[in-house]
Design a protein around this nucleic acid. Structure first.
Lengths: 159, 159
DNA sequence: GCTAATCTATACTTAATAGTCAAGATTACT
DNA sequence: AGTAATCTTGACTATTAAGTATAGATTAGC
């Protein structure tokens, strides 16, 4: 019951891009990777997933980089998590159990299943209601944030 | 954001042992593994974790097997999940980030952190309130359940 | 004490996830 | 057109989780 690295880093990348979007600025892979403390190659891998999920768009060549594909308020965190690593119980244990026959007919399984469903609902209530916009600080903080981003040196972060 | 195999199977084993406890009966590894559709070796591995976590106790030799170490009502599912695979965000990303320096000073991290904390709270509210007893069906069902367990042939499950 | 049934422990293999590398494709600017 | 900055892709390696195998230790009953 863990958050995958993809989910953690992917969401963080989106938050950074959302902030950068306030000054209509694209972020490059070197910038993002430095800011997140991961290798450029790994950042690229994560961003590919986000692009295929329709959350970010990329521009190649000089002056290129990544931007959000749509407004932060329209990006539900639940959808992001889905794209980055899947929900908690996607492979419903009650329908197919490691490729074997269904085991839902066993009472014990169904009681456990109900519990997972309750957890799933609890998680969804948080993740589906929250948008990327909800993760951003208030406007002043945003301004102080984006002002600290220098041109070519990667993100220089506020303390 | 997935449930690990250990967590899924481990909890199921506990539910079975709770039912078996109603007729003061120990379940052997072959019985449990057959009922859960996993190999005996794998079942043994999971049961070891449960034993070290203090949820079950084992008796060796003939007539041996596993039983719950304490009443089902005193076993919180949250504790079981902890023992079997850890909670969602045990390695708090804000304190130590892949062995690097703390990154909590970066605003972006803290907003993401707040979200995970909210998810964590939501999950805990379900898992910490639920005990193993809560996962058992009502008494009549229990009786029909245990009556279907034959002596030496492994669990024969109700349909 | 012997035997069969049981758990215990460690090491091993396989599969999935995390993370890296290198070569290629696109674009802005000159 | 040339060049440097950028993303794109697929294959590769490393680490962790999942699952297996084997040999050993304990116990009940004879």
């Amino acid at each position: 019951m863990k958050l995958s690295a993809n989910e953690e880093y992917g969401l963080r990348c989106l938050v950074r891009l959302a902030y950068a979007g306030f000054e209509e600025r694209a972020l490059t892979i070197p910038e993002i990777s430095q800011a997140e403390g991961v290798s450029p190659a790994y950042a690229a891998k994560i961003l590919r997933v986000l692009r295929k999920g329709g959350f970010v768009k990329a521009a190649r060549g000089k002056e290129g980089g990544y931007t959000l594909a749509r407004p932060a308020a329209s990006i539900r965190i639940g959808d992001v998590i889905d794209a980055l690593g899947g929900r908690l119980f996607e492979s419903d244990f009650c329908d197919t159990h490691a490729g074997q026959a269904p085991i839902c007919t066993r009472s014990v399984d169904c009681s456990v299943r109900s519990l997972w469903r309750a957890v799933q609902v609890a998680v969804d209530q948080v993740l589906s209601k929250t948008t990327l916009r909800d993760l951003l600080q208030n406007e002043e903080e945003m301004n102080s944030w984006v002002r600290t981003i220098p041109g070519a040196n990667g993100l220089r972060l506020i303390q």
